[in-house]
Design a protein around this nucleic acid. Structure first.
Length: 489
RNA sequence: GCUCCGGUGGUGUAGUCCGGCCAAGCAUAUCGGCCUUUCGAGCCGACGACUCGGGUCCAAAUCCCGGCCGGAGCACCA
């Protein structure tokens, strides 16, 4: 066990770590709850925070009111808690406008920023050619005057913007002078209409990364160009630049992650909520019964490489399966049931383990059933596949399936059994699951949007709110007495 | 188009910085076997990869050049 643990994959060490540890950040925008994609940045940062100590700051980046879901401020924190990411500080950017304003003013005074009313089309076009717009060359005093008018709300949306200078000759046009502030005229969910001039992400991030004392920044490589822009601000102020690490893009297929789409779907009734099984939100994964450790393991295993990858649900499922398998009670769920007549004199008994591989006392409980003349239920899939053949009903005995009925053959492999299956090697008889009495209707909602309707052992209701292994079917989080969410095969 | 980054089996990765111990490790998937009643778990085995072409070198997955393919940025989003 210990040896196996040592073999476990480990993230590479970080450079420039001091004795006091690291200061890192999680910087989501509050547009909705976190999803499986956000989990990567959360876990990577948290893993290093756990290794080195220091601070892990949750910084909610709410500088675009158009893109804010008020409930997200709390949902994000709950999601992180579920992931066992224990951030040490909480910072909300909309509470820091004064700092941003001060800093912008300083940059303008230094001649490192300007405020423009030139149409942005011209700004962009000139930037492509490496040419300045007129405000760039105007004095700090003139720009300062426009700046104070901009902050006090004397301009309308679209009329003015503030720019941080970089280098107009930069070979990469994406890095040349970038907009740092713009006017927004819709109210902010937290601040109302207190502010008109809103910082752009590249500005507020640079300022906060410095004042919050970030030592290491780990984020997706879509931010590489942003990092270059932000470094100009650090350079102007002579601030110590954090160590940046950009990991590659993860494409998460077969999953709905876009907040705008999810919100729309919730409104239209297509999704039952943020935790609909069709979604890739952490809320949905939680409700499907995933263990957050599986997510952590997956992303640690994936590392921080800069190559783009595709999220492998297969491997993720496998990690989760290994975690939950032992603690998942076993039950029979018969999907699309077929009722077969069972004409039999006498009684058969079945003792089916609830936790087959558990050694712990108290968990050896079996599901005990007696079966006599009446009905035996199997899934239509098994019925179609094995009609006319010999099967083993798990923990009950050998049976021959015939149209609409089923016959008992024997309990163990003997001559009686053999004569039913003359051409099959013994021990190769298919084992299928079944129900006979004690079953209740049950539906399983699956991530692909389909629903399986069937019957489950009534005993399963003694374990509500936990993940079960429905034998030969898959893992299911049993939510209540009639419905469960499919976890994975 | 402009700037930049990257390409290891079906999938996810280790190794690439500091060439040799890599005729390439691990995981997952698939197939087979065992555990004598799960299509789960566990154990054992099989399968399967260095994007291509040149170059340097005694020696290249690792260094250099070019092609091909993929990705990112070029927002009054984050």
């Amino acid at each position: 066990m210990t040896a196996a643990k040592e073999d476990e994959k480990r993230l590479p060490d970080l450079p420039n770590v001091e004795n006091s540890g690291v200061v890192m950040r999680l910087a989501p925008s509050p547009s909705g709850p976190l999803h499986i994609g956000h989990a990567r940045m959360s876990i990577l940062n948290d893993e290093y925070f756990r290794r080195y100590g220091g601070k892990l700051i949750l910084r909610i980046e709410d500088t675009n009111p158009a893109n804010i879901e008020p409930a997200a401020y709390q949902m994000i924190q709950d999601d992180l808690k579920w992931l066992e990411v224990n951030f040490t500080d909480l910072v909300v950017q909309s509470k820091r406008f004064d700092i941003y304003y001060d800093e912008m003013k300083k940059l303008i005074e230094m001649g490192k920023a300007y405020v423009a009313t030139t149409p942005t089309e011209e700004f962009k076009a000139k930037k492509q050619k490496g040419m300045p717009i007129k405000e760039r060359d105007e004095s700090p005093e003139e720009n300062l005057e426009r700046w104070s008018k901009m902050v006090s709300g004397e301009y309308e949306k679209g009329e003015v913007y503030a720019v941080v200078k970089t280098d107009l000759d930069h070979p990469n046009p994406a890095i040349r002078d970038f907009i740092a502030f713009r006017i927004i005229d819709i109210p902010h969910p937290l601040e109302g209409d207190k502010y008109k001039a809103y910082p752009m992400m590249n500005f507020s991030v640079a300022i906060d990364d410095h004042y919050l004392g970030l030592t290491h920044v780990i984020r997706g490589k879509d931010h590489i160009a942003n990092t270059e822009k932000q470094k100009y601000i650090f350079g102007y102020r002579n601030w110590k630049v954090p160590y940046y690490l950009h990991y590659g893009k993860v494409s998460i297929e077969h999953s709905i992650l876009k907040t705008s789409l999810i919100k729309k779907g919730i409104r239209s009734g297509e999704f039952s909520g943020w935790d609909d099984p069709k979604l890739g939100t952490l809320l949905a994964l939680k409700k499907r019964g995933f263990d957050p450790l599986a997510i952590r393991k997956y992303y640690v295993e994936s590392g921080i490489g800069s190559v783009d990858t595709t999220f492998s649900w297969e491997i993720f499922y496998s990690f989760n399966r290994k975690i939950i398998d032992n603690r998942s009670p076993r039950h029979f769920f018969v999907n699309q049931p077929v009722y077969l007549d069972f004409d039999f004199e006498g009684t058969l008994t079945a003792d089916i383990p609830l936790f087959p591989q558990s050694n712990r006392a108290g968990e050896h409980k079996n599901r005990h059933y007696t079966v006599g003349k009446g009905t035996i239920i199997i899934s239509s899939q098994d019925y179609q596949k094995f009609n006319g053949e010999l099967v083993r009903l798990k923990d009950l005995g050998y049976f021959k399936i015939e149209p609409d009925e089923i016959h008992y053959v024997g309990t163990s492999i003997n001559e009686d059994v053999q004569k039913w299956s003359p051409n099959k090697p013994l021990g190769k008889v298919p084992i299928i699951h079944w129900l006979s009495g004690n079953e209740i209707p049950f539906v399983v909602a699956k991530p692909d949007g389909t629903v399986d309707t069937g019957l489950v052992e009534k005993n399963a209701l003694n374990y509500l709110g936990t993940v079960h292994q429905f034998e030969r079917y898959g893992y299911v989080n049993v939510l209540n007495e009639k419905e469960g969410y499919f976890t994975h095969p």
